[in-house]
């Protein structure tokens, strides 16, 4: 029980920190994302690319032997990523950023979040109907 309470506190702290960083970086700003996608500004591209490089180093140094679940290429990888990328460019929000936008007072994010929940629900129905494998990161 105390383990659960501890992990809830850690989840809350990391959630606030991640939301804060997403907002301060501009990753929740439609215009900033559009500037990244059209290569009008290199700032977010360098921020994200730099984060990947540093995370790679961090995982290598601190968690090389850990059993973190693998992410293989599956049938849904390319079509799913194409749809996600299109939605990201239109709505200006990846799933985390949509929640951050709500906190920033952008009420349109409610429509985005409703859409994300609807899309996930639709996928779950189709997955069960057609027997697709589940590749979700329930994390």
């Amino acid at each position: 029980m105390s383990m659960h309470r501890r992990s809830t506190v850690v989840l809350a702290a990391l959630g606030v920190a991640l939301g804060f960083v997403i907002s301060m970086s501009g990753l929740s700003d439609w215009g900033e994302l559009h500037a990244m996608f059209t290569f009008a500004s290199p700032r977010l591209l360098l921020a994200f690319g730099g984060a990947v490089v540093l995370a790679t180093a961090g995982f290598f140094l601190l968690a090389r032997r850990d059993q973190i679940p693998a992410k293989h290429i599956v049938a849904g990888t390319v079509p799913g990523a194409l749809l996600f990328g299109a939605g990201w460019a239109v709505a200006g929000a990846c799933p985390g950023a949509a929640l951050v936008q709500l906190g920033e007072g952008k009420l349109g994010a409610i429509a985005t979040i409703a859409g994300i929940l609807g899309g996930a629900w639709l996928h779950d129905r189709l997955r069960k109907r057609f027997g697709w494998a589940r590749h979700s990161c329930i994390d």
């Binding site: 992410k71 990888t77 079509p79 996600f84 709505a91 200006g92 639709l122 590749h135």
Partner: peptide
């Protein structure tokens, strides 16, 4: 448009994991 984009995000991320 935001809701439609959201559907693409929700469905796409679930599909590519």
């Amino acid at each position: 448009a935001l809701a439609g984009g959201g559907v693409l995000v929700g469905f796409g991320t679930a599909l590519c994991g």
